[in-house]
Design a protein around this nucleic acid. Structure first.
Lengths: 120, 120
DNA sequence: TATTTAAAACTACAAATGTCGTTGGTGCTT
DNA sequence: AAGCACCAACGACATTTGTAGTTTTAAATA
């Protein structure tokens, strides 16, 4: 259930569901996708595909369905991070950090907080 | 020229080209893709698509073409890293590092080397 | 209960992607 | 010069993805 792969568009839906502490209806989701200009049917299609993949589940309440994520947010993100690092940084986070650092892509604040984290 | 997007399969080709210090022919590339079971035509199609996108260039030498990367390896990797961090870690590398750290996904060696890097 | 209507289901379709098969041209060998 | 071998060009096709229109069903209401 945790190895589900989702697309960019589907991820936008997942983000909404992850952010909510209660199940949401398709319309709730549309509302929270303010920036996106997706039609209801588009969101609906994405929800179907996500359910098909096992990334979400739903229950009927009244006339609508209410959706809940099954795919774990943290696990998914970790998997994606590791996938990228494996693909282009030889599996080592350090390689990625070095590359970003040398390109001045890491904020001073991030540096401080990472140092603090590693000091423990 | 640097904002080129390439697919997973195309990336495999780019990796070979990045690794080589001289231009390679399609057959050279096939040879170095030992794990992949791609047919010559597959590699050839990927090379065409990459050239179309401006990610590589080529010159005719004798009967074959020899390919050279145009897309900069480091720039590409940084772009991908930033893209992922922006997409799922709110744009902050720290968030990603924290997540990986808490999931015990960072090797002790990587931790040491990152600390050293940041100490400078 | 018949009617209205909101929401889900079904269908569609173009572009991108992975993966080749086939055709055709050009340089190398006799 | 003719034939052969090698390689590139072209075309193809299934699958995935983004995006949505249309039809059907079931809930709400008159």
């Amino acid at each position: 259930m945790s190895k589900v792969n989702i697309t960019e568009a589907e991820l936008e839906i997942m983000k909404i569901l992850w952010k909510s502490d209660t199940p949401l209806s398709s319309y709730d989701i549309c509302d929270r996708l303010e920036d996106k200009t997706w039609k209801y049917t588009t969101v609906s299609t994405l929800l179907s595909r996500l359910a098909e993949k096992g990334a979400i589940t739903y229950e009927k309440r009244g006339k609508s369905y209410f959706y809940t994520p099954l795919l774990d947010e943290n696990a998914y993100k970790i998997r994606q991070a590791k996938k990228l690092i494996g693909k282009i940084y030889d599996g080592s986070l350090k390689n990625m950090v070095v590359a970003l650092y040398e390109n001045k892509e890491i904020s001073e604040q991030d540096i401080q907080e990472i140092k603090k984290l590693f000091k423990l």
